[in-house]
Nucleic acid binder design. Structure first.
Length: 950
RNA sequence: GCGGGUAUGGCGAAAUUGGUAGACGCGCCAGACUUAGGAUCUGGUGCCGUGAGGCAUGGGGGUUCGAGUCCCUCUAUCCGCACCA
């Protein structure tokens, strides 16, 4: 019987399904383990070979853990709400609900094809009401809680109201928006509306007007991390700043904990660094300056209070509230002009011109509290409204941007730190002696900062302060395809939440789901839904894509629970994710948000661990090879002229463009000299119909017309080859289904792992898949030859057992450290060794099949049943290495003289160091080298080498 | 600009704590069986040299009996952040 993988795969897929082999129990007495994949967006493009890389790795680990006796939760679901799904729907004109359902079906089929051990009875999909019911539920909880910074936990808003009614807000230390202070008596006399507005400043889900990233083309606002270089991450549309009233989540309340608890999780260093940079904690001081012409105070934030004597001017963000108040009549015109200029510039312009500074003088002066000097107050784009206090004291001597500003507007520069003692030190090093700085002259920077802060504090005009770069998360989208907010506004416009038993608030059917251009959400078009009989109105924004993904891993624990998002028992059993596998692209978005939600739920006693993920593994990207050809922009004798790769150097870069070519047309693609021959060119012309009739090709032999480039001729048209992302537009997408059809799922899985280390990015090249293909066939051939099962029941020899057990040891070690590529190599080595001694003994093959089962689930299942077992191999035990067979009786020691290898010799493995030295010195070739001189030292590294120093 | 990673044959890559560098696979070369093979099997394959031998882990330097591995430095390349006061 030939190895017929498609028959085998169909058979076992059916068996797994019927016998619920991968069903996971919540009531197991086995130790738990939770392996989670980042669930995919079911986009219309389907999966390419890069997507399953992480899934295969996690599946191997899951199967391995199960075979070691753990109850392993390994679920899969779909992140089906949000922009990508809606964009696809808009492009195709079909309702997102329909396309999403279709895409999920397709993804599911593709995933099933690869033989994963997901417990599909636990599938979640974020766009299903049964799921988003709980997303809305958590949102209501966020709305109904505030964050107490004294007790460092979220507490119910109702408790805050009691505090307010008893003592006002003066003693409340909350994570909050700026808010005037009030006494209990005032609170009690406030109207409902006033109370509601004040409480908004404390809620963890709150509404405020803010400058947001508005994307006209997408018709929605975007979170900061959905914007890259001033354009939307998806689609690359321009994004501008616009003030709008939006929902926000107060993630900043958890900033410190999100930072601190990084030390408890096993993420890569770069991942932790990325997160802490994003959180961006800095310690500094808040300082109040008097203003000469106004009773207002100027509040600034600085990390370098010591440099106050070098502050020769102040800069406010253009949007700062004080700008209007302090601007003098003389300067009014200049300021207005500048504000106009700022307004005209998009976020993109601002980002593009980081090096360029600009600003205008308000005419007002601040007073240095220590020496009463007058410091001019400017405004400038380089100071950000949202960071710190939106105002700085500028120290041109030590800050590059302040320096550029000072030079441009001819403002004085006063040196205040003598760094001559520390050559090469930068300002960040905080080294040097203070000069020109009054009472801190001669002090080192660090104590100077302390002293100034203390003085400011005792003068009552400043205090130490910690700042975070991270902003609260914008949670509103003017979009259709998302979770509706469970929020209603009453006649006074006061928002209140739906009752929890009214959830889910289902997304109403809407035919015209396209975004509007007036800043209102598509749902606003549905008046019958928006307006309630009592005159109240619903919130029409929807939640962003990261809402559902912020907590989905908890739902898998108990996905069909109607009463809670997951039962206490389920959460107590599963606790947290032991291993989370996914790409680095979610470093700061999803991972921070979900850590935040998890911590919030922890504060409410609804989760049992501080962190959701114990360990994070980032798989690399699989890139494609992209082949392209050059086309001159200008026609040659009225025809398109394509130019072979090396001849393009004759032309200027502006004269030609590059066109992607499907790699299947290219011979030797991905090598140094990929080319199109007669057939390839023919395919190409058929593919690009617009070029077919009138194209010329410039090759080494001159300009030829297509018919002149004959079959089997020497004429080669070279293409340009590079490694690029797999994408439709590059025609280099490889669909796993095609690979599986040709080579089988087991082979595909083995090959994906064999490609290289999991964390690394690597290009896909199907051609080298033959290696693992051969291995799979050879493994099959050690069971079956000419249709006959040829297994021997003879007892295995020590030599055979040694091969097996060394392999088991190596493979289990490698799985533990996620080195799956070396596992596959090891399988090949074991098989080669067994082949060379013609071993087909049951005693060896039985554990070998179990060893390979996590990697090749179908083949191993088939071979396992060939060995006469009736239960699934995936329910069997992973083999354990027997130490007895790992011990070598003889070691071949390299023998070195002064570190240079001069020969080898076999010594008994149990020889002592002294015996080894003794034996070494008696060897003929050693004596020849020693030539009568006594060695200074003999170094023996047991099991490694012997080195003689002379 | 700041932060982090990576650099090993023609290619993908091994080398767990410093201990015979290049396992395993692709490709290539030779051979066997074949009417034939893009099937299968066997052997070879880092570079220089007929040879003994020498040289090799991006470049330079250091520590060590011994460095791909540790330290310093330079270069290339990829990723992340980017007016954060």
């Amino acid at each position: 019987m030939e190895y017929n993988f498609s028959e085998i795969e169909t058979k076992w897929k059916k068996y797994w399904e019927e016998n619920q082999v991968y069903k996971v129990s919540n009531n197991s007495n086995k130790p738990k383990y939770y392996v989670l994949d980042m669930f995919p967006y079911p986009s219309g493009a389907g999966l390419h070979v890069g997507h399953p890389l992480g899934y295969i790795a996690s599946d191997i680990f899951t199967r391995y853990k199960r075979m070691q006796g753990h109850e392993v939760l390994h679920p899969m679901g779909f992140d089906s709400f949000g922009l990508p799904a809606e964009q696809y729907a808009i492009q195709t004109g079909i309702h997102p609900e329909k396309t999403t359902a279709e895409n999920i079906k397709r993804y599911r089929a593709q995933l099933d094809n690869i033989g994963f051990s997901f417990d599909w009875s636990r599938q979640v999909s974020t766009c299903e009401p049964e799921f988003y019911k709980w997303t809305q539920w958590i949102f209501i909880e966020l709305f109904n809680h505030w964050y107490d910074q004294n007790r460092n936990t979220a507490l119910p808003i109702s408790e805050l109201e009691i505090i307010f009614s008893r003592e006002g807000n003066r003693h409340v230390n909350a994570a909050q928006s700026p808010c005037p202070s009030f006494a209990a008596s005032q609170w009690n006399s406030f109207s409902r509306k006033e109370k509601s507005d004040l409480l908004m400043n404390y809620r963890l889900a709150y509404r405020k007007e803010a400058f947001v990233n508005w994307c006209e083309a997408l018709g929605t606002v975007l979170a900061n991390d959905e914007v890259k270089d001033g354009v939307s991450e998806r689609g690359g549309h321009p994004v501008e700043r616009r003030p709008m009233t939006q929902w926000f989540l107060r993630i900043t309340a958890y900033a410190q904990r999100l930072l601190d608890d990084l030390k408890d999780v096993d993420f890569s260093d770069s991942m932790k660094i990325m997160q802490s940079n994003w959180i961006g904690r800095s310690t500094g001081a808040q300082v109040f300056f008097d203003i000469d012409s106004s009773i207002e105070k100027l509040e600034i934030y600085t990390t370098r209070a010591d440099t106050i004597f070098g502050a020769t001017f102040m800069v406010l963000a253009p949007e700062h509230e004080l700008v209007d108040i302090i601007t003098t009549t003389d300067q009014r015109k200049a300021i207005d002009q500048y504000l106009e200029f700022v307004k005209s510039r998009s976020e993109r312009d601002r980002m593009a011109e980081v090096k360029e500074v600009s600003g205008a003088f308000t005419g007002a002066f601040a007073i240095n509290p220590f020496n009463q000097e007058k410091i001019p107050i400017w405004i400038g784009e380089y100071v950000l409204k949202d960071y710190g206090t939106g105002a700085i004291m500028a120290v041109p001597a030590d800050d590059a941007r302040d320096n550029a500003f000072a030079k441009k507007y001819h403002l004085p520069i006063v040196e205040i730190i003598d760094k001559s003692m520390y050559p090469g030190a930068t300002i960040e090093d905080k080294l040097g002696k203070m000069i020109n700085s009054d009472f801190i002259n001669g002090m080192e920077v660090l104590p100077a900062i302390d002293l100034i802060c203390n003085r400011l504090e005792s003068m009552g005009i400043g205090k130490k302060q910690i700042n975070f770069k991270m902003r609260d998360a914008n949670f509103s989208r003017q979009r259709y395809w998302g979770e509706p907010f469970p929020i209603i506004y009453d006649n006074e416009g006061i928002p209140y939440t739906l009752d929890k038993n009214e959830l889910p608030l289902e997304l109403p059917a809407l035919d015209d789901f396209k975004p509007t251009t007036n800043g209102k959400a598509p749902l606003s078009k549905l008046e019958s839904w928006v307006k309630l009989p009592n005159g109240h109105t619903r919130e029409t924004d929807t939640m962003p894509g990261f809402a559902g993904s912020s907590w989905y891993f908890l739902r898998y624990m108990d996905p069909n629970n109607q009463k809670e998002f997951a039962s206490k028992e389920a959460i107590t059993y599963w606790q947290d994710v032991d291993l989370y596998v996914g790409g680095t692209e979610h470093a700061v978005g999803h991972l921070l948000y979900s850590r935040f939600w998890h911590k919030f739920l922890f504060d409410l006693g609804l989760t049992v661990t501080k962190e959701p993920y114990k360990r994070l593994l980032n798989q690399g990207m699989i890139q494609g090879i992209s082949e392209s050809i050059y086309l001159l922009k200008e026609k040659h004798e009225g025809k398109n002229l394509f130019v072979s790769k090396e001849l393009i150097k004759k032309y200027d870069e502006k004269e030609y463009i590059r066109i992607a070519v499907p790699i299947s047309y290219v011979k030797d693609y991905g090598t140094e000299n990929p080319f199109l021959d007669h057939l390839g060119l023919m395919d190409l012309l058929l593919f690009y119909k617009e070029y077919s009739d009138n194209s010329l090709f410039e090759i080494e032999q001159g300009i030829k017309n297509f018919t002149e480039i004959l079959p089997n001729s020497q004429y080669k048209f070279y293409t340009h080859s590079e490694v690029a992302k797999m994408s439709k537009s590059q025609y280099n997408v490889i669909n796993p289904d095609d690979v599986i059809e040709k080579y089988g799922s087991d082979c595909f899985r083995l090959f994906e792992m064999f490609l290289g280390p999991l964390e690394q990015s690597k290009p896909w090249d199907t051609r080298s898949i033959d290696g693992v293909g051969k291995f799979v066939r050879r493994l099959w051939a050690s069971f079956y030859s000419d249709d006959v099962l040829t297994i021997s029941d003879e007892l295995a020899t020590d030599e055979e057992l040694k091969i097996l057990h060394k392999g088991i040891k190596k493979i289990s070690d490698d799985i533990e450290r996620f080195s799956f590529n070396t596992c596959v190599s090891q399988f090949m080595i074991i098989l080669n060794e067994l082949k060379s001694i013609n071993c087909n003994k049951r005693e060896i093959l039985d554990p070998l099949v179990r060893l390979i089962a996590p990697f090749a689930p179908f083949l191993s299942e088939e071979l396992w049943s060939s060995l006469g077992h009736s239960e699934s191999v995936h329910k069997s035990r992973f083999p354990q290495a027997n130490e007895k067979y790992l011990v070598e009786s003889i070691f071949t020691y390299p023998i070195c003289i002064n570190g240079k290898k001069r020969g080898t010799y076999d010594f008994p493995a149990d020889a002592s160091q002294d015996t080894l030295i003794d034996m070494t010195l008696k060897l003929d070739f050693v004596n020849k080298w020693l030539d009568g001189t006594a060695p200074k030292k003999v170094i023996v590294v047991p099991g490694k080498m012997v080195n003689i120093v002379i």
